[in-house]
Amino acid sequence: MQTDARKPAPEWLVPFLAAALSVPTFVAFWIGGRPELGAIYGAVSLLFGAILVVGSRSDTLRMLRGVDDDERTLLLEYKATTAMGLVLVTALAGLFLAAGIRGENGLVYGALLVLAEITHVVALAVLSRKG
């Protein structure tokens, strides 16, 4: 019995999106006059997509592709996403404080921190109504 799992996405979707992200990445940096940087960042994105396709035997990569999604993989994904959020917020807080030490206004980092906290609060409010 499948419980609490999302409708499975096609197996090719995540690798395709990861690879496809290389195009706007390259174009954005090319427009900004740094095509070499765009090529490097785009290549990283392409490489990630390729690893997702090639590494079919890895349980972790299978979960990233959404293969055999079920309640356990969904729970693991929640935990992994929480860890990712925690690392990002910690990094942003560090960058915000570092900006303050350097005498900068740190507006971008501060705004992102506020956005993260607002998202957290709104998500909690919405999810608590759903039970």
């Binding site: 019995m1 499948q2 609490d4 349980d59 055999d68 999604d69 079920d70 309640e71 356990r72 993989t73």
Partner: peptide
């Protein structure tokens, strides 16, 4: 059960408590 083989294995080895 419409779950992955890894999930059955995780339940059997007490690494995962099912819903």
């Amino acid at each position: 059960m419409q779950v992955s083989r890894q999930t059955i294995n995780a339940i059997e080895t007490e690494r995962y408590t099912p819903s």
